[in-house]
Design a protein around this nucleic acid. Structure first.
Lengths: 159, 159
DNA sequence: AATAATACTTACAAAAATATAACTATTATT
DNA sequence: AATAATAGTTATATTTTTGTAAGTATTATT
């Protein structure tokens, strides 16, 4: 590991640790007040929006949630017809969860709702900063998703 | 509002909504397993690390926490000598909280602890991606902190 | 001077997340 | 065939967070 890379890693960690509670502030409260889903169920819906189909274990792994919690969150989403259970024909122990059309529509609507306050604050930024934010947020999202995938494949997750 | 800005805002929101649970996954679990602070207390410590002194109301505002919760989280930090109460000489209703030297040291140590897993994953990234991540995360942090401040000044917060 | 508003605390209830153990059904190993 | 391992569920307890109401001390308003 090069010295230059170490510096990049250190400052990335420093920045990401600061970003986390700031984003949390932006979204968690709106999820509670503006939707009838709890935050956990919405995160499950979000990860299914990205992957379409995941087993119960994979969901728990990707969101670092204990399995029993995943069960209860998925139960709520099923009650709302946002996701559905599919039995895996190759291994009948596995329960695959797929997001439904309604789930996709609802998720998009919820995203609009919970981002209203953030949108108001973003509208006050300069055009230049908005450009920077759009580009930087895309880069971080892509890298985190890439890491999520590689992490998932390792032995430390979904053991 | 220009059409170009709208597009930047929409895609920023889309990206930030995806980033949030991915970061949450990275940190929340390590906070529980590797520290004896609950996540809330650590967020309070983090915001005090950035601002040095804040009143109880300001802390609650910046972290979108109900006041009674702030009281209990600050109590825990005081018990650990990480922060201290200061009476405001100009308005004796106000309780200002200041991070101590020990609080700063502890926070830095905790940051190292809770970022270990993330560090392992970051080390697998290419040098090019690490550069991008370091730069992008700094840009986002700066913009979110700038918004935090302006948000704080508006009438919608700390009412 | 009396009243209202503010900052904070205390007390309590409820929602959400976490952790653990026990259990069923299925698949893999021996 | 017997045993072990895996995927998921159920049940239960604990921690963390949220929300609300009431109360104290102080400051601002009238």
């Amino acid at each position: 590991m090069l010295e230059k890379n170490k510096i990049s890693i250190d400052s990335s960690i420093e920045n990401l640790i600061s970003i986390h509670p700031l984003l949390s502030k932006s979204f968690t409260k709106s999820i509670r007040t503006k939707t009838n889903l709890n935050p956990g169920s919405l995160y499950v819906l979000g990860v299914l929006r990205r992957h379409d189909i995941l087993s119960m274990s994979e969901i728990g792994c990707k969101l670092s949630m204990p399995k029993p919690h995943v069960t209860s969150l998925v139960d709520k989403l099923i009650a709302e017809d946002m996701v559905e259970r599919l039995l895996d024909p190759k291994d009948r122990r596995i329960v695959n969860i797929r997001i439904t059309e309604k789930g996709i529509d609802d998720f998009n609507a919820i995203k609009l709702e919970i981002s209203q306050e953030l949108r108001i604050r973003l509208e006050k930024l300069s055009a230049e900063k908005l450009d920077i934010l759009a580009e930087a947020s895309k880069q971080i999202k892509d890298i985190l998703i890439e890491m999520e995938l590689s992490y998932n494949g390792s032995s430390t997750c979904c053991k």
